[in-house]
């Protein structure tokens, strides 16, 4: 069973969100990194780029396949994890810590209400597996 920390929020497209005031840190879930296998390339988006909830904001590639990262929220990218360009494996090694992908300055804070709790996300993964 994959790890789903209780203090984070989630979306069904397998991204996690950590809300810190009006900034959201985003990564992929343990479940997602397990499915993808070893990450070999992360296409880092530009800081300042506008992102929209539910739309693709960047791409990560594993030994197995390329996978879109879907932005869980709307806003402007305030920071990207530069370490990933040299060490994409950080996503496999520390998926909820050093493996974060990007930070968004939120423009639609109300969207936070629509994110899934850890329990809801765990259930969503469970249903996918069966």
């Amino acid at each position: 069973m994959s790890e789903v920390p209780g203090e984070l929020k989630y979306v069904s497209t397998h991204e996690w969100v950590r809300i810190d005031d009006n900034v959201a840190t985003i990564g992929i879930t343990d479940h997602a990194q397990t499915l993808l296998g070893d990450l070999v390339f992360v296409e880092l988006p530009e800081v300042g780029q506008q992102v929209v909830k539910g739309e693709e904001c960047t791409v990560i590639e594993s030994v197995k396949s390329a996978s879109d990262i879907i932005s869980p929220l709307t806003g402007k990218i305030s920071e990207v994890n530069e370490l990933l360009s040299e060490k994409p494996e950080l996503i496999n090694e520390d998926v909820y810590g050093d493996g974060w992908i990007l930070r968004i300055k939120l423009s639609e804070k109300a969207e936070i209400e629509q994110l899934l709790s850890a329990d809801q996300y765990a259930e969503c993964v469970e249903n996918e597996d069966h």
């Binding site: 296998g37 070893d38 496999n92």
Partner: peptide, 8 residues
């Protein structure tokens, strides 16, 4: 088996 932890 696809891998046992890390394909690389």
């Amino acid at each position: 088996p696809l891998h046992y932890g890390s394909q690389i």
